[in-house]
Design a protein around this nucleic acid. Structure first.
Length: 426
RNA sequence: GGAGGGAUGGGUGAGUGGUUGAAACCGGCGGUCUUGAAAACCGUUAGCCUCGAAAGGGGCUCGGGGGUUCGAAUCCCUCUCCCUCCGCCA
């Protein structure tokens, strides 16, 4: 959420930034609503000041056993007036908040201006896509042939967009998660969190999924419980309504969780394989940073995520999302895209964002400099480090051999009891 | 699931309709004293909204929401959370 006063004072800037994002007319009659709200607020508060003063006088009179009925009678009317004015002010306030709630974050000045993903800017590449001397297979062919991935039974027990991992397939998923968590906790200084996979609506509001994107989420019927779409949600909300000590920043957390997405509106999109599932596992990186340091922290967070791909020897590129492709809460995002031989292109495997104070304002997540300083909103950052399922399939596709076997990179050997090769079942 | 008890400022905890935005203590910060420190003493120590160029005003907030009243931390309703006991249970 943007700051009300900031929007009031920077209306043109906000409008221009919204245009860059490709959303229009989100501001509506903001100016009029704001003006009216303050008008009624002022009137109500003037009368409240009067009421408070007279109440004191009544108290004083009663103490001296004197008659106060005239004042009480006068205040009866004022009370009714206040109620009416309060209601008006509240109505405008709610409309104003409704507008603010639905305004996405302002893109940072360094974000490439553009309408779509086609306007994203490649920042750097790492590794060289492998030249195959045979026709590389897709993971949805490799996995079942290796006996480690089962779509039919997943469909039976759950439905479309689910997968069952078996044997070394399940173990590889677990090995990848452990490898990522160990890397981030041992070498990158993140503290591991294991959060609930179910959260309440206030938590989803804090990170910006609610109220606008509820159709992307799974809700537990008859409750205020929702399945998390990413660990960013519970972990970023960890310190909601708290005031952190500036000396503790940046705070760095990583978390492995299952993620649940309804994928509404993505029918027919990437239906094959495990690229787009209702449930997948992900290791997430979350940082809470000082405002003046948050862009440096975004760079290092992105590098931390890249390190996973480098250790696994998977070629990738880093892309700066354009203003039109940016997520709702993000001011700047780098996507990490891993090379997928079956697609012949780079495919998103991580998304690293600086949300600045946008989420912190919604979640009332603040910090204080020293003991005497004013409270300020922290900057929140998050990024996948990495999506485990997509890493799993990237491994299969990039390390496949002509006979359908898959070589496992050295970094994973300690996590797989020495298994170095996946071989097809006869 | 059943029964009962709670929720007050950074912490502990008083307060049951009228200078209580809130005692006291602890903690924090500043100061006096001291070569320095400790102790002691003195002072200070919430947030949000709003008016204002500023100085400085005003309003709201005692878990959330609603109600009664001229006036609510205090009374009523409701929701959430926490604790204790019983039941169930990985």
């Amino acid at each position: 959420m943007l700051d009300l006063g900031f929007v009031r004072d920077n209306l043109e800037l906000v409008k221009r930034k919204m245009e860059q994002r490709g959303v229009s007319d989100l501001l509506g009659n903001f100016e009029a609503l704001d003006r009216e709200r303050r008008k009624f607020l002022l009137e109500a508060e003037t009368r409240k000041a009067r009421r408070n003063k007279v109440s004191e006088e009544i108290a004083a009179l009663k103490k001296q056993k004197q008659d106060a009925s005239a004042l009480i009678a006068e205040m009866k009317n004022v009370g009714a007036e206040i109620a009416g004015l309060d209601e008006k002010a509240k109505s405008y306030d709610e409309q104003l908040r409704e507008i603010l709630r639905n305004i996405p974050n302002l893109p940072h000045e360094s974000v490439p201006v553009g309408r779509t993903a086609a306007d994203n800017r490649e920042v750097r590449r790492w590794g060289e896509p492998r030249k195959f001397e045979f026709e590389p297979k897709a993971h949805w062919d490799l996995g079942p042939a290796l006996g480690i991935l089962d779509f039919e039974r997943a469909t039976k027990i759950s439905g479309a967009r689910f997968a069952v991992y078996r044997g070394l397939g399940a173990k590889l998923e677990r090995a990848l998660a452990n490898f990522m968590l160990d890397l981030h906790t041992r070498e990158h200084g993140y503290t591991e969190i294991l959060p609930p996979f179910i959260v309440n609506s206030a938590t989803l509001y804090g990170t910006g999924q609610l109220p606008k994107f509820k159709e992307d989420l799974f809700k537990l019927e008859g409750t205020d419980y929702w399945l998390i779409p990413t660990a960013e949600v519970p972990v970023t909300n960890l310190y909601r309504d708290e005031v952190l000590d500036a000396s503790k920043l940046p705070l760095k957390h990583c978390a492995w969780t299952a993620c649940f997405r309804s994928e509404a509106g993505s029918y027919g999109k990437e239906t094959r394989g495990i690229i787009r599932q209702h449930q997948f596992q992900k290791v997430e990186l979350v940082k809470f940073a000082l405002p003046e340091q948050s862009y440096d922290e975004l760079e290092s967070l992105t590098r931390d995520a890249e390190a996973v791909l480098q250790r696994l020897g998977l070629p990738y590129r880093v892309v700066a999302l354009s203003t039109g492709d940016l997520g709702f809460s993000s001011a700047k995002t780098y996507d990490l895209e891993v090379w997928l031989p079956s697609a012949g292109e780079y495919k998103e495997i991580s998304s690293c964002s600086n949300c600045e104070a946008f989420q912190a304002r919604r979640a009332n997540l603040r910090f204080r400099r020293g003991k005497a300083g004013k409270t300020e909103f922290v900057h929140t950052l998050n990024g996948s480090g990495l999506a485990v399922g997509r890493t799993w399939l990237a491994l299969l596709e990039n390390y496949q051999q002509a006979d359908g076997s898959v070589i496992l990179p050295e970094a994973l050997h300690p996590y797989l009891d020495g298994v170095q090769l996946l071989t097809p079942q006869k």
